[in-house]
Write a protein that binds this DNA or RNA. Structure first.
Lengths: 338, 338
DNA sequence: AGGCGCAATGGAAGCGTTTCCATGAGGAAA
DNA sequence: TTTCCTCATGGAAACGCTTCCATTGCGCCT
């Protein structure tokens, strides 16, 4: 409850000027060792800690990084955040989380955060800002990096969604599947880059290469979660003839597919092959085949890029591509493991 | 890139004094409507936003809440955070996450955060601070609330771990199990309150009530994760005679048990009953019996208590108890669901 | 011995707000 | 008309720091 001591108190106790105290705090060279000692002593006596807010006032730096992320929509994001957190704590930065649950909230953050200057840098995950916002970030001089999203105006770190989807679908085709269902994420109306769109392209490509026809009936859009995946799968699996394989845009959706299959007494993988996307921890538990994203790496590298940008704000935007890895487990037809 | 306008710029443009601008910003009553309009106009013209750091300087409020949490150790914590985030965004507060991975980091945060005053309040999850730290929080006047941890000096929100463990073990006993293995979390050396200790008490109680002997051999401590749970289960299941049921302190550990059982070709639930703790989402997927904690509620109510405390800092510490719910699924022996 | 330059230091200014006090205008009461 | 009081307003002070400029003292060079 005692008031916090200030630099003036320290100066008084140490019998020096406030300038000298400040110099000691900032490791400024021109302080005589003897003086430094006096000051240091006073500091420990008073339990003095410099007030970071007053410092921020002058330095215009807060030591915090903001992360805008649809946090609870997919375990995927938790994993990315893990990477973010790792890199950030190494860099001694604080992590401020802005969770977004809907478009209103997203836009609110996009427009408010650059103005309020409570973070030194911004990491945006899975949410492509429109050009207007993107340019806004540049204009106010807030270093920003996109992860799992793309904008030409902002350094972006994306995985190759086309390739990932292609790998998944091709592996299904290689196993002889001809009618392949596709549960995609939501394709955004305003048609910026987005994951769902790229994955559709990959889906098409794999089909085309195998001279298979794309049947619009076999593609469904759904939210990224299990319930929606399940509902989508129920629709797909009641088509006639039904698909013999389903590719889902996220592991959670794929798990929904497994549930739907169980409900309809369709056995996996014998009657239905299933492959997901992400490779979250549960995928391994359920022996789900999937397309692995380097989630932690995405987070870490995103932070690394952001720190670079903060050090050198005039840097031009970059586009960094990471690749996916096909993980074939039981749901695409390997014999049951032990 | 243009410098941010300040209150002085606004005052100049509007042809008023800075005091008046400030009054407009803070909805102070005594400003003539006409004057207010002039100021408001200047504000929109300049795209002026008050600098929150300068505000913090005076108000000594940052609008942020810190959360110290061993974030990535259990999905449990993600769920609690979800509740925290909900409550916080309703209250328009920012969320600063301090993830702790080890004791050093924990103690660092415990001692540094109260001093640096970058958060208005602190929520600590699953990490009991020692008395020294606990009193420290009070002394510097940082409102603090504990969730899933207890200290007599700080408002604490805990579930009834004794009861939860008791419920779990009793349900096993009711099903006829006599040799029950217990994979507990780590019991902290310094023997403050902790979850593991209470659960051990609950375990004992259930055993005692049924006149069963506690066999120290059948209890193992392990980290809260799957790998450790699996290792612990392998040890338990190679005892002779082996337990017919295992109660694990977390669902992730319980999942490790399931893996171990599969590896040893022990079938669940016929040859081995398994029950976990938490009721995270995967538990349902794997049809795992468990003791449900109201995770989101813990987060929300923790924040609610914290906000109360911030409004009324002299409040005395409270102890709030939440209860658990036994969820019986397949791994404790219900016949296989569809 | 005198002058010069540099190292060490003190403290004012300034960062962008809020708050408070002083001032002035205008209306009501006499 | 004069006196008070109130309401609206301007701007200085303060928040706790960093930075910069001015000042002092000392050693070294000539």
């Amino acid at each position: 409850m005692t008031a916090h001591p200030t630099i003036h108190d320290v100066a008084r106790i140490a019998g020096v000027g406030i300038g000298t105290v400040s110099r000691v705090l900032n490791d400024h060279p021109s302080v005589r060792p003897a003086t430094r000692e006096k000051v240091l002593l006073a500091i420990t006596q008073l339990h003095f800690k410099p007030n970071p807010i007053a410092r921020s006032m002058i330095s215009k730096q807060t030591g915090s990084i903001g992360v805008i992320v649809p946090f609870f929509t997919r375990p995927f994001h938790t994993e990315v955040l893990r990477g973010v957190q790792n890199a950030l704590s190494r860099a001694q930065k604080e992590l401020v989380i802005y969770n977004v649950e809907n478009d209103t909230q997203r836009d609110h953050y996009f427009s408010a955060i650059p103005m309020h200057r409570k973070v030194d840098g911004l990491l945006i995950i899975s949410l492509p800002p429109g050009d207007a916002f993107a340019c806004g970030f540049r204009e106010v001089g807030l270093p920003t990096v996109l992860v799992d999203a793309y904008s030409p105006h902002i350094t972006s770190l994306v995985i190759n969604n086309v390739e990932g989807a292609y790998q998944a679908v091709k592996s299904l085709i290689n196993r002889g599947h001809q009618r392949i269902g596709f549960i995609n994420g939501i394709i955004e109306g305003n048609f910026k880059f987005n994951q769902a769109n790229d994955r559709l392209i990959g889906f098409h490509r794999a089909l085309g290469e195998a001279a298979l026809l794309f049947e619009p009936d076999l593609m469904v859009e759904s939210e990224w979660n299990r319930q929606a995946g399940r509902a989508a799968a129920l629709r797909l699996l009641t088509r006639n003839p039904r698909p013999t394989a389903i590719f889902a845009s996220s592991d959670m959706q794929a798990i929904g597919v497994l549930e739907a299959a169980r409900q309809l007494h369709i056995s996996v993988p014998t009657q239905l092959a299933v492959i997901g996307f992400d490779d979250i921890e549960v995928a391994e538990l359920l022996d789900l085949s999937t397309v692995q994203q380097p989630m932690q790496q995405m987070g870490e590298q995103g932070v690394a890029k952001l720190l670079e940008l903060m050090a050198e704000p005039q840097r031009l935007p970059e586009l960094i591509r990471l690749s996916t890895t096909l993980i074939e487990r039981n749901t695409t037809g390997r014999s049951l493991s032990l």
